[in-house]
Design a protein around this nucleic acid. Structure first.
Length: 675
RNA sequence: GCGCCCGUAGCUCAGUUGGAUAGAGCGUUGGCCUCCGAAGCCAAAGGUCGCAGGUUCGAAUCCUGCCGGGCGCACCA
């Protein structure tokens, strides 16, 4: 926990700049606090003197030197040095820093921002099994949720279920048109223990796509089915509801395997049935934000004008092209909100949903318990008042909203934000964040392994996953393979371990492998998923981090066995020990470096949230595990004979394992007892 | 055509609101298990940070223009 130290140092610098240089806080540059490249230079570095050099007409070094003396003493800071190049370097009081952290006595970080945060993630169309692309969404979203909660913010996790969209309609048509099933037939299929219903729908969905391609008039059947499902109260709608319910339950089981869960399932059908959209539509019409288009190809549709980014609207035509040649639609783009057949597009429904999330709609859902989850009810929205039962917690009315959706939908998210602003809620628009990330594609090797020949001839660097074509790695298949591989590894290393325990361990390893893999890349990068790469448990992987903690835990197992010492025993013993092993010599510097690095979890968590870069958390955990492994090899604990040295090292191991366990937990990963 | 994203070592990627000598993993080569677990550690080799300008005391990072790649610009979501 280093942020409280940052806050203290920053505050003292601001005071000193005001007192010594007469710079009021408003005129001061932002004070960045960095880590020096080498520990010998200091523990914290502040480059503020460079910033001030011009304004004060002095050399950075002179400013740094003045600051050094003017700052005086700061609690917890042993000394301050002005580096020859102008850096201001802070050396912390190692003993008190480490003891405070071990005791958990470090002052709390800045109080978290007030108000509930809603994070919406996963949102898989409920018409087929989850695949690797969906997993990236869930892993990023769930980790964001855990990070926000770690910061002390109240978070509500929502999973949006698009049960009235075209994709459910497609599968319903597959059942009725291709297979001639009625509702009872689909129910029988779903209840057949030999059938994996989500896998079955996966294949059926791909067949429906081919069926459409066979005859363009079949698209009319699709439009009809969609309309029927939206209307409700008919056979197609009944089947759609059944399919969506069953597939959602499949998705929840898959996600539970990865330690991902939710507070509320928001069903799109309820938004329609409760006329959320009708309410939002009235307001949008009254504001003139949407209007009925009477001419052109969009005649008969209710449309919304799209705000062009600044400068784009009045762009001059390219040379050789006159303004007359340009499409009129280019100048004033319109997005269809209500189709000419009267159905509402996704954007329309989601505008209503966004308003509800912020408590701006003036209407609420009814709620039902969707799943018991062993005493932790999972709630879902519903359209009718429930007969009785427990009262739901207060949902919605958030201060801020994160929508975790891949960047291909950036355009729609932009519209959503825009409409919030248009409707008179610029503050909420500002606090509505699209957490955008790039898609997961497949490497050519993995596509080939899945039976897709000759994907290289496309000339593209990767193969795009396509649910429509049934092309992709199913989440459960991937997990099964990872568990099988991990089980083999565990049994090889721990032959005496009972099979059931080996399985539990393998599951923990598999989850860490896949979750770490999905968050280690920065979000702007397309992941070309390669199954062989993902099956690795070595190098920069989740299992590497787990392994470091297992080793640390083993040390304490042995300490307890031999010396009767546990974590708290070590901490108690350290209080009366001279700190030489922490303060003098190369080994002490290395020990201290490990403790300081471990303390940065809160700093990295904060940074990861601000930048929406979960990869920073992953990188932190890996780097710390690496530092621990180096320390582990160089500075033994059990066989160290000097008692004080042994205990200080044990203290470092204790803090390290705590921080690494927390970091893994933030990524939804656990630590096996052995592996 | 317009918008967004990406371009850093053979491959896959980090690089913290511009800061000290550009770092990992994989792969390659060579070492380390009578010693807290080798899913590990140590070492070596490997980079005109796509190109060209500009801003700055300082640029992989910011700006402009190119080049290459991806994704969007549906009465799908």
């Amino acid at each position: 926990m280093i942020l409280p130290v940052h806050a203290l140092v920053r505050r003292r610098l601001q005071q000193t700049l005001a007192e010594t240089f007469g710079l009021q806080e408003a005129d001061q540059p932002a004070i960045a606090i960095e880590m020096p490249p080498r520990r010998a230079l200091g523990d914290l570095a502040v480059p503020v003197a460079f910033e001030l050099a011009r304004r004060l007409r002095k050399a950075p070094r002179a400013i740094a030197q003045e600051l050094t003396t003017a700052l005086g003493t700061i609690p917890g800071v042993a000394r301050i040095e002005a580096a020859p190049n102008g850096y201001l370097n802070f050396f912390l009081d190692r003993r008190s820093f480490m003891l405070d952290r071990l005791r958990g006595a470090a002052p709390a970080a800045a109080p978290p921002l007030a108000g509930k945060v809603i994070v919406e993630h996963t949102a898989i169309n409920p018409n087929k099994a989850a695949h690797i692309g969906h997993l990236r969404n869930s892993a990023l979203g769930d980790t964001l949720v855990r990070l926000l909660r770690y910061q002390g913010r109240p978070v509500e996790v929502q999973n949006y279920i698009d049960d009235t969209g075209v994709q459910v309609a497609d599968v319903v048509l597959g059942f009725t048109q291709l297979e001639g099933r009625d509702l009872a037939g689909v129910q029988a299929l779903a209840n057949d223990p030999a059938v994996r219903f989500d896998y079955y729908c996966w294949d059926l969905y791909a067949k429906v796509t081919e069926w459409y391609e066979g005859d363009a008039t079949r698209l009319q059947a699709r439009a009809h089915a969609m309309h029927a499902i939206e209307e409700g109260g008919n056979a197609l709608a009944g089947m759609g509801a059944f399919v969506a319910d069953r597939i959602v339950r499949c998705h929840l089981r898959t996600m539970a395997r990865l330690n991902v869960d939710y507070d509320l399932l928001t069903w799109e059908g309820d938004i329609l049935r409760l006329r959320f959209w009708a309410k939002a539509f009235e307001e949008l019409k009254a504001l003139g934000a949407v209007f009925l288009q009477t001419e052109g190809k969009l005649a008969g549709c209710w449309v919304m004008k799209i705000e062009e980014p600044a400068g784009a609207a009045d762009a001059v035509p390219a040379e050789g092209e006159t303004a007359r040649d340009a499409e009129p639609a280019e100048a004033e783009r319109e997005k269809v909100i209500v189709r000419s057949n009267g159905t509402v597009t996704y954007v329309g429904k989601d505008i209503a949903n966004q308003l509800w999330k912020f408590g701006l709609l003036g209407r609420d859902f009814f709620y039902r318990v969707f799943d018991d989850r062993g005493g932790r009810p999972l709630w879902a929205t519903t359209s009718t008042p429930p007969a009785g039962g427990a009262a739901p917690p207060p949902f919605g009315k958030a201060a801020a909203v994160y929508n975790v959706i891949d960047s291909r939908q950036a355009y729609l998210q932009q519209l959503l934000k825009q409409s919030l602003g248009t409707m008179g809620f610029p503050g909420q628009a500002e606090r509505s964040t699209h957490f955008a990330y790039e898609m997961v594609a497949l490497s050519h090797a993995t596509a080939r392994e899945l039976g897709y020949a000759d994907t290289e001839s496309s000339g593209k660097p990767f193969v795009e996953v396509s649910g429509r074509k049934g092309l992709g790695v199913k989440a459960d298949d991937l997990l099964d393979r990872l568990i099988a591989t991990a089980t083999a590894e565990v049994m090889q290393r721990q032959p005496e371990l009972p099979a059931a325990d080996a399985r539990v361990t393998a599951e923990a390893i598999a989850v860490a492998a896949v979750r770490y893999f999905l968050v280690k890349f920065s979000r702007g990068k397309v992941i070309a998923f390669d199954i062989q790469e993902a099956l690795s448990f070595e190098g920069e992987t989740g299992p590497y981090v787990q392994y470091a903690v297992v080793r640390a835990n083993n040390i304490f197992g042995k300490l307890r066995e031999r010396d009767g010492l546990d974590g708290t025993g070590v901490i108690a013993a350290l209080a009366s020990l001279p700190p030489t092993a922490l303060t003098e010599g190369d080994e002490a510097d290395e020990l201290w470096g490990l403790v300081l690095e471990a303390s940065r979890l809160d700093e990295l968590a904060d940074s990861a949230i601000r930048a929406l870069e979960i990869s920073q958390l992953a990188k932190f955990a890996f780097t710390l595990a690496q530092a621990f492994n180096t320390f582990y090899h160089r500075q033994p604990i059990m066989r160290e004979e000097r008692a004080d040295v042994r205990l200080w090292r044990a203290g470092a191991v204790e803090y390290c394992r705590q921080q690494l366990t927390t970091a893994l937990g933030l990524m939804g990963c656990s630590v096996p007892t052995r592996m």
